[in-house]
């Protein structure tokens, strides 16, 4: 009888513990997934070298520190200084290259061969859908 009670107790503790751990873990995953990246106006950057850090969530799994160099108003270089995640450098380099390329090609408008309305409206629709996200 006593043994059975102890067993039940252990099962309850394991279950409750599991639920708590899972809740924390999924919250952490969600935070990582939904981390908002907004507010940088790439058109207004002052030249210089800046260090940026992200503390990496509750358990600091994703903590990292980078150095960004801005020259002539554009992001010219991004270097990873510290990271707890340990992704291969090819991964981060490619990611940073993308940031550098996309900011450098930010445009006000696009010149292309004359577009008929249907194709163009499709693009406008696409843009508006993106804007709604």
């Amino acid at each position: 009888m006593v043994l059975r009670n102890i067993m039940i107790g252990i099962i309850i503790i394991v279950l409750v513990g599991g639920i708590i751990c899972w809740t924390l873990f999924s919250k952490e995953l969600r935070e990582g997934k939904n981390l908002p990246l907004t507010g940088v106006d790439f058109k207004r950057l002052a030249d210089g070298t800046y260090t940026g850090t992200y503390e990496g969530g509750r358990f600091k799994w994703r903590a990292n520190e980078v150095q960004v160099t801005v020259s002539s108003g554009k992001v010219a270089r991004i270097a990873l200084l510290k990271s707890t995640e340990g992704r291969p450098s090819e991964f981060t380099n490619e990611l940073y290259d993308k940031v550098i390329r996309s900011q450098s090609l930010q445009v006000d408008t696009i010149s292309g061969a004359t577009i008929t309305s249907k194709a163009y409206l499709k693009a406008v629709e696409d843009a508006l859908l993106k804007a709604q996200k």
Partner: peptide
């Protein structure tokens, strides 16, 4: 600053 015109 100049207008930035992308070329398709």
């Amino acid at each position: 600053s100049p207008w930035r015109v992308g070329i398709q």
